[in-house]
């Protein structure tokens, strides 16, 4: 088994569970590692990591690296960065994936700066492919294509890191799908000595207060989403959407414009800077359809757009376009649903 040049996922630890985004990246990482013929590795840094490997092996992880120390949970930038950097200098990963979260987007750039390796933020797709430098004509094989939207979502760029390793990328939660590949998959566990990897001088930032609660909203897993945009008009009007979602057994989502306007809380935001969703039914209410929003929902099975503007851009990707005011349309949909469902 080779110890170097593998694909490693930095796994976020909330004290008892590995974060969903990390499991999604392990699923993607397994596919990429197979395509490259390399091993899939997971790195977990935190405390109380006793049986963390049992959460990771089903995703096809070949090696779990653990660094377990009470001072390493909750996450702080410098101790985690020093541990990742020291480990990477030893195992020289070919590819490193992290969640595009407040942790991954804090840690990734620090690590990439120190190792002088490229990092691409918020990728929406990752593939393996070849590359020829346009100027030098040098050919590179089996690079990680880091595909991401840029320029407010109006373009999609494919980024490569031809010369530097690891090739690093972050991906938002919900962009990749998590999938257990084998409940009985077994890999190796390497319990690393914190004293050897974590710089003792790195504990400079002290957490003096912390309030984190499990998300109340589960947009990502909802089969039906009723989403509102700026066109909903007010927090008050959003109640209509909550009513419809409640009747249909769905969740309420929102565009960035609606969140920025304060109509609903941030964890309902769908799109490139929010969550990516793929429900079986997506009802877009008063959403014009900025490209950033569409990128986060266009894989929905059925899309209904309710908009007073018949020319709203979102209508072009909708299966059903209802032209009218939400106040007249939503109560009717509720009425007909109650009448016709058993």
């Amino acid at each position: 088994m080779q110890d170097k040049n593998n694909l490693i996922v930095y796994c976020e630890w909330d004290g008892s569970r590995v974060a969903d985004v990390s499991l999604e990246l392990l699923t993607k990482g397994r596919q990429l590692a197979n395509a490259r013929g390399i091993q899939l590795e997971a790195l977990v840094i935190g405390s109380d990591l006793d049986d963390v490997e049992s959460q990771l092996f089903p995703y096809g992880v070949d090696t779990v690296y653990k660094i377990d120390d009470p001072r390493l949970f909750p996450y702080t930038s410098l101790p985690h960065a020093s541990a990742v950097i020291n480990l990477f200098r030893e195992i020289e990963p070919e590819i490193c994936l992290m969640g595009a979260t407040t942790i991954g987007r804090d840690l990734g750039p620090r690590v990439s700066s120190c190792l002088h390796s490229g990092l691409t933020a918020d990728c929406t797709a990752l593939e393996i492919g070849d590359h020829t430098d346009a100027v030098t004509k040098t050919e590179y094989h089996n690079l990680l294509y880091q595909i991401r939207p840029a320029f407010g979502g109006n373009i999609v760029a494919t980024i490569v890191n031809p010369e530097h390793r690891p090739q690093m990328a972050t991906v938002r939660e919900g962009v990749m799908r998590k999938e257990i590949i084998d409940q009985d998959y077994e890999g190796f566990v390497k319990d690393l000595d914190p004293a050897k990897y974590v710089d003792p001088e790195s504990f400079v930032v002290k957490i003096i207060e912390r309030e984190v609660e499990a998300s109340k909203v589960n947009i990502k897993g909802a089969p039906i989403i009723v989403a509102g945009g700026y066109g909903v008009g007010s927090k008050e009007n959003f109640k209509l959407l909550f009513e419809l979602a409640d009747v249909l057994g769905g969740e309420v989502g929102a565009s960035r414009a609606a969140v920025d306007a304060g109509f609903v809380e941030h964890d309902r935001q769908i799109g490139q800077t929010g969550v990516t969703v793929r429900p079986k039914l997506y009802i877009a209410c008063g959403i014009s359809g900025q490209i950033q929003h569409i990128a986060g929902m266009n894989e929905s099975s059925i899309i209904i757009s309710i908009n007073s503007d018949p020319e709203a851009p979102i209508n072009t990707i909708a299966d059903y376009v209802i032209t009218g005011n939400l106040e007249e349309v939503i109560p009717r949909l509720i009425k007909y649903y109650k009448k016709n469902s058993k």
Binding site: I155, A157, T316, D319, Y320
Partner: peptide
């Protein structure tokens, strides 16, 4: 270290919508 390999414009597949 990062190089832009390609850039493409985002075009979403338009659907034939039923209008009401």
């Amino acid at each position: 270290p990062t190089k832009v390999k390609t850039v493409v414009n985002v075009v979403f597949q338009a659907k034939e919508s039923k209008r009401l």
